[in-house]
Amino acid sequence: MSNMTEVKIIFTGTMGAGKTTAINAISEIKTISTEAVATDETAQRKETTTVGMDYGEVTVDEGLVLRLYGTPGQRRFRHMWEILAKGALGFVILVDNARPAPLEDLSIYLDNFKNHIAASAAVIGVTRTDVSAQPDIDAYYQYLAEREEMHPVMTVDVRRREDVLMLLDSLLLSREFE
């Protein structure tokens, strides 16, 4: 075990955007989840919400494991954000495009993980564009430009494994070419 390399990837972003779903889509082990029955407006869309963390794994080869951590989405669980973020290779930020102000939602995570992202990388996955097509990807890039930040922004459906892998790949490539 001693020469085992472990790489940590964080899935964070808006509540209900699909962090738990994304990790389930690619994990090779049965994921560890900490779902609780939702009692707030989340309940109108889905029964449960993450209150601790999600955890999944992909074994790359005998010496390398990819650890996937999902944070809770809701702000009152900020205490978990900081605990989980340490030492991550990069951040997958998922944004639910069908909420009233997706760009403001995005800013919460960009602001909160600012220092971590500056030291690693981030990719933004825009989900539920089938429910709401606006804001479009141009608006996201415009918004990032105003913040003087640049991260890949991609339309995804995290229920599809290949979409989640695409997000991971762009994160890995961002680190490779930094």
Binding site: V58, V60, L64, L66, L165, D169
Partner: peptide
């Protein structure tokens, strides 16, 4: 070190 690790992951995940 980092590049090597990333290369291994990308090959493994079929990228």
């Amino acid at each position: 070190g980092l590049r090597g690790v990333i290369g291994r992951i990308r090959v493994r995940l079929g990228m």
